[in-house]
């Protein structure tokens, strides 16, 4: 296995433009081997384009990228020997059964017919798909497709596994299953590079996170480093009477000393909690008792992590903007 000090991915100055838009605008990366690395950003940020360049599917317009020391353009074949990719839209053949999908890929990886069949059976079993193995993939649920898709990337255990939005569109249970698989892969020594739109997913899984927006890397670090840069999180309050909102806004702004924003729900508001760590709980408790003392009744309250929007607001000074659907472009 690769030495832990080695880099799985090193990229500098990656640029990719499509017809009208620049999708990736000079991204530098270094992903340590053996880690789980997260690309965090909204739709159209350039995450998929970056992954596709690293996985040899797109040629960068400028800049270089190396995967385990192999250049992704000049030495693409050597890169392909070490990676596997599970794309954002299931990279499966709908017209074949789950078993046939895996067996075909086994053959394409160089397994004998028998070897491919046995590996397919093994993976179907491990991913809980044995019962559905001989059904066409087009009849699978979203969670089943995702599991098969990930299994398909593991026919030969890759040194670097790309997962493009592995849990987007999954129900919470399927999402937890995918997370469990990713953790085992990482524990077994595979470097995992995943993209996500969800801060909590990056937080749960990734050792390091790169925040990407509009084709550039706006921040990079561990999850706690990023959160520290954003602040402690947010207090979400829902009031019994919407008419109390201006008063509640004043009370919370004073108690927490941060910005308070009105939500779309006329009875709800969110306040930034500036202090991170254990002190946050105390500050919030004080703010809530201030509300009670002001005779403002709250029906719900929750202390949340900073949302992706808040991370973006803090890092870029503006909310994440939806751009043209670059992620679908090739």
């Amino acid at each position: 296995m690769t030495r832990s000090s080695a880099l799985a991915v090193e990229a500098s100055g990656l640029v990719k433009a499509f017809a009208a838009t620049v999708a990736v605008h000079g991204i530098d990366l270094s992903v340590p081997a053996g880690s789980v690395y997260g690309f965090l950003g909204p739709n159209g940020a350039g995450k998929t384009t970056t992954i596709r360049m690293l996985a040899t599917l797109l040629r960068p317009d400028a800049g270089t990228a190396r995967v385990f020391g192999h250049d992704v353009v000049r030495d693409a074949a050597a890169v392909r020997d070490r990676i596997s990719l599970t794309g954002q839209y299931a990279s499966l053949d709908d017209g074949l059964t789950g078993r046939e999908n895996l067996a075909l890929l086994g053959r394409l990886h160089g397994h004998s017919r028998a070897g491919a069949a046995s590996r397919a059976g093994e993976l179907l079993d491990a991913f809980g798909l044995t019962d559905a193995a001989d059904r066409l993939v087009k009849t699978y649920s979203g969670g089943m497709r995702r599991r098969l898709d990930i299994a398909a990337g593991l026919i030969v255990t890759p040194d670097l596994l790309f997962l493009d939005e592995p849990t987007t569109g999954l129900d919470p249970r399927s999402r937890n299953e995918v997370w469990a698989i990713i953790r085992v892969m990482a524990a077994e020594g595979t470097t995992v590079l995943l993209t996500t739109q969800y801060l909590d997913e990056a937080d749960q899984l990734a050792d390091r996170i790169a925040v990407i927006d509009r084709g550039t890397l706006v921040a990079e670090g561990t999850s706690s480093q990023l959160k520290a840069s954003v602040g402690g999180g947010a207090l979400h309050v829902r009031l019994n009477d919407p008419h109390d909102r201006p008063a509640a806004t004043r009370v919370l702004a004073q108690a927490l000393g941060g910005a308070v924003t009105a939500d779309a729900d006329p009875a709800a508001l969110s306040a930034r909690v500036p202090a991170a760590g254990p002190a946050a709980g105390e500050t919030v408790a004080r703010a809530l008792s201030d509300l009670a003392r002001a005779q403002i009744a709250a029906t719900e309250f929750a202390l949340g992590q900073p949302s992706l929007d808040e991370v973006f607001l803090a890092l870029t000074g503006r909310p994440p903007a939806e751009r043209s659907p670059e992620e679908k472009a090739e």
Partner: peptide
């Protein structure tokens, strides 16, 4: 998958077949 050694072995690295 997360727990047993046998399941881990399925996901662990193995010699790669020839191209």
């Amino acid at each position: 998958i997360a727990g047993t050694a046998a399941a881990r072995a399925i996901l662990a690295g193995r010699p790669r077949p020839a191209r």
